[in-house]
């Protein structure tokens, strides 16, 4: 493990460091934040200073505390969404690969249709229909992203299904669940791990975009996307405070992308 880390390029090490820092901030948010998440502590739009390190927001809440709590809320929701998308996508992907024939046909065509509509637009349509709440947003984005996971899981599982040990397990009379979880899943995990990183970025950006548009995570929950939206007016006065939550989003996705880039590079066997 240690030897592996020492071969990592600087970009990947930077990525890992950032991810670790974000995780610490998110987990220990209660201890790190100087004020409460929704606590009004001063006047609106106070400048940076000793009391409020990064000033206050449009309702007089401490910006730094909200960014810290935002780490927990935004990342937590994005992670949960990605997990749901993966469980659904991988499950149906393996199902399509094992059963083949009409099950595969139906699922694959369904996914084709869903992928023919741009993700952001599809989620906007579904959010209009079901109303805007955190739960619907999580489910909608998970459903849309799971189609992308399905494609990859099905394609990689297809290569495993034709192998002799799967055939042997089938002849032994193992059930569907055993085939999926014991024979196929362990063999398709490596490509899925890198995909998890990428999907997390997409989910994270999608949630931030929706929150930024005012259709995702709703106030008073601290969330980076909606924080940018609420304080965007400050930008035209030359104050960079609203860029901080946006930058926090960008930094995390850059970090994850750097790490995934390195992992893909390693697994593709290319060495530079």
């Amino acid at each position: 493990m240690w030897r592996l880390l020492r071969t990592a390029p600087p970009t990947a090490i930077f990525g890992m460091l950032v991810i670790v820092i974000y995780a610490i901030v998110a987990i220990f948010a209660d201890g790190l934040a100087p004020f409460g998440e929704t606590e009004v502590v001063g006047f609106e739009y106070e400048p940076w200073g000793d009391d409020f390190l990064l000033g206050t927001d449009n309702l007089g809440r401490d910006m730094l505390s909200r960014i810290i709590y935002g780490a927990r809320n935004t990342i937590g929701i994005a992670l949960a969404t990605t997990f749901i998308a993966f469980s659904v996508g991988v499950f149906f992907g393996m199902l399509a690969a094992i059963l083949g024939r009409w099950v595969d046909q139906i699922l694959s065509r369904l996914v084709d249709v869903m992928m023919a509509i741009p993700a952001l637009l599809f989620s906007l349509l579904l959010l209009t229909v079901f109303g805007t709440s955190i739960l619907t947003m999580v489910l909608v984005i998970a459903a849309i992203e799971s189609t992308r996971v399905f494609r990859l899981a099905r394609a990689t599982a297809m290569n495993v299904v034709v192998m002799d040990f799967v055939e042997a397990a089938k002849l032994r009379g193992e059930g569907l669940m055993w085939l999926a979880s014991r024979e196929i899943l362990p063999n398709i995990v490596p490509p899925l791990v890198a995909e998890f990183g990428l999907r997390f970025c997409f989910v994270f950006l999608a949630i931030s975009a929706l929150s930024f548009l005012g259709l995702g995570i709703q106030p008073p929950t601290a969330d980076w996307g909606s924080m940018v939206r609420d304080n965007a007016g400050l930008i035209t006065f030359g104050d960079i405070t609203p860029l901080l939550p946006a930058g926090s989003i960008a930094l995390l996705t850059v970090a994850v992308n750097f790490l995934v880039d390195w992992m893909l590079h390693r697994s593709s066997g290319l060495r530079t």
Binding site: C201, A209, F212, A232, I235, G238, I240, A246, V254
Partner: peptide, 21 residues
Amino acid sequence: LSAISFPEFFVAYILLYLLSA
């Protein structure tokens, strides 16, 4: 890779800050 990872509104606001404000 960084530009891909940035949310569109981040890029937009940076430009807004630098070139407009």
